[in-house]
């Protein structure tokens, strides 16, 4: 293989070159935090669970590409990603089913939406009320579940495809 030094992450557990690893070490946390912002403010600003989940997933993919699979699987192993995938899907469904018990209808927004006048200044200061973080009932909760689910799904698919490549490489090398 000509370019196995750069892209093959199986044989070289230390991953890519020093430049890429240094940049990745700096950037990965910022990508993660930006993804969290997109998820948590999804009901106030453009964004939401799908976009934020994929951004969070990007930070894990960056670690996987730059540092190799041992170090990436130490952070988020395939088993744990599969579990997170199921947890996200079940949580989303659970919020939907909880609507039956709390408000009588499937998928109803059962967390109360506070009216504009009923919020006093203390609550507004800690972030409750319209245009604040804790508003819109179940929407931010669902955003978080979807983000977990999407992040784990994309990571799983990427890791599996990358490992399929590696198997092919070793077979072609023989």
């Amino acid at each position: 293989m000509n370019n196995s030094n750069q892209i093959n992450i199986a044989e070289h557990s230390e991953g890519m070159s020093l430049v890429v690893r240094t940049i990745a070490r700096w950037v990965k946390s910022f990508i993660f935090i930006f993804g969290l912002y997109i998820v948590f403010y999804g009901h106030l600003t453009p964004g939401g669970g799908f976009a934020g989940g994929v951004i969070i997933c990007c930070s894990f993919i960056l670690v996987l590409l730059a540092f190799g699979k041992e170090r990436a699987f130490k952070r988020l192993s395939l088993e744990r990603a599969g579990a997170l995938d199921s947890i996200g899907a079940l949580g989303f469904l659970l919020v939907a089913v909880a609507g039956i018990f709390f408000a009588g209808t499937f998928f109803v927004n059962w967390l109360s939406v506070p009216a504009a006048g009923s919020i006093n200044s203390l609550l507004r200061k800690i972030g409750v009320g319209e245009f604040r973080l804790l508003s819109a009932g179940t929407i931010p909760v669902n955003n978080i579940w979807i983000a977990i689910k999407v992040c784990a799904s994309m990571y799983l698919v990427f890791a599996l495809l990358a490992m399929l490549r590696i198997n092919d490489d070793t077979q072609e090398d023989l």
């Binding site: 964004g47 819109a136 929407i139």
Partner: peptide, 22 residues
């Protein structure tokens, strides 16, 4: 007024049209 979400897109995909998102 209905959902309390400032982002109308989020309000539609997670409240009005929650089934689609599911």
């Amino acid at each position: 007024e209905d959902t309390g979400a400032a982002n109308a897109v989020s309000a539609v995909i997670l409240d009005y049209r929650g089934y689609d998102t599911l």
